[in-house]
């Protein structure tokens, strides 16, 4: 029992944090939102160089072997810096493509960051492919590898089937995909891909929430009204104390889910990390006041992301259902 990241894992996240801090990610997000992917692709390459996408890929395909804990720790940093793009989808794609012919063909490009993948899955739980309509794929315009999961298997999509849809988070560019195309495998590991994707979203949301908290703590410490910093008021303090508590109790759920990779644990982590991030977003908006309500102020990049992640990769009730179905099967032991 040692439920803590070790020195090497901490050094890895610290170096990722340093690299992203120097990268002016808000400017990258704004480029990405306009459909200008150049700065985002450059950042993507550096994230790949840091080894992030290799954390879901076996060594024989250029990866570092599956390391869900390191992947989760990396995604906390990606969320903290509001990195745009189909990050989660690329991880899920790496899992979907694990079978030899596809793996050799596609995984090296994902690991190297030369390919960005997106995935369109049917609406409904567990990528189970029984519903007909496909969900929109994130950043279908930027992705170089577009996958569609249907009841019949995993397809290489022939391309976008319509224009990018405007989203409340302008950096998330949802695109309809055409499912028709080459059949890659009839039986992709749907549930494992969902688990890895959901774990990545959970970690990303935690990072988004931590950034919102940090920025708001800094703001209420320097913004003065009635002659004092507004952060000295108890109503402000308590709101931030609650935001911090929710985030700090979501953090071990994320780490625990990365350790067990049980779908119910991952669903619980996803639910609570997204709830905590959204709670932090609401507190951040309220405590910044009107300036926080503007698109121009960088806080908006995290505010809108927190909202989007709540329902991406499993809405709250879907996650709760997984948790309770698992619990009703009998206690998992302490």
């Amino acid at each position: 029992m040692r439920f803590l990241p070790d020195a090497e894992q901490r050094a890895f996240t610290a170096s990722l944090h340093a690299m992203l801090s120097a990268a002016d990610t808000p400017a990258v997000v704004r480029d990405w939102s306009r459909g200008d992917h150049a700065s985002g692709r450059a950042l993507w390459s550096r994230i790949a160089e840091a080894g992030v996408f290799g954390l879901a890929v076996p060594q024989e395909y250029g990866g570092l072997e599956p390391h869900p804990v390191e992947l989760a720790l990396a995604f906390v940093e990606l969320g903290r810096h509001a990195v745009p793009g189909p990050l989660v989808e690329t991880v899920a794609a790496a899992v979907l493509l694990e079978d030899p012919p596809s793996a050799g063909r596609f995984l090296p490009g994902l690991v190297a960051g030369t390919d960005l993948a997106t995935v369109a899955a049917p609406a409904g739980p567990a990528l189970d492919g029984h519903a007909s309509a496909l969900r929109l794929a994130l950043d279908g315009d930027a992705a170089t590898l577009r996958l569609a999961v249907t009841a019949d298997g995993l397809y290489l999509s022939t391309g976008a089937a319509g224009p990018v849809r405007r989203c409340l988070d302008p950096a998330r560019r949802l695109t309809p995909l055409a499912p028709q195309g080459e059949l890659l495998t009839a039986d992709p590991p749907r549930e494992r891909a969902l688990t890895w994707g959901r774990l990545a979203v959970a970690a990303q949301a935690l990072g988004v929430g931590l950034a919102l908290l940090d920025r708001t703590v800094a703001y209420v410490g320097q913004r003065t009204q009635f002659g004092v910093p507004i952060g000295s008021f108890q109503a402000v303090k308590h709101r931030l104390a609650d935001a911090m508590t929710a985030l700090e109790f979501a953090r071990p759920l994320v780490l625990g889910a990365a350790t067990s990779l049980r779908p119910a644990d991952v669903a619980a982590a996803k639910l609570k990390a997204c709830e905590a991030a959204y709670g932090a977003a609401r507190a951040a908006l309220q405590l910044h006041g009107a300036i926080g309500y503007t698109a121009e102020f960088d806080l908006s990049l995290w505010l809108t992301r927190a909202r989007a992640l709540r329902t991406a990769w499993g809405a709250p009730e879907e996650c709760r259902k997984l948790v309770l179905d698992d619990a009703l099967k009998g206690p998992a032991g302490p």
């Binding site: 908290l213 703590v217 209420v220 410490g221 004092v228 910093p229 952060g231 000295s232 008021f233 108890q234 402000v236 303090k237 308590h238 931030l240 104390a241 609650d242 911090m244 508590t245």
Partner: peptide, 19 residues
Amino acid sequence: EIQRDIVAERLLGLPKGRR
């Protein structure tokens, strides 16, 4: 309420103020 004050002041570093 006291615990939240402690979280805000000692963990988040917010300024002390009137309770």
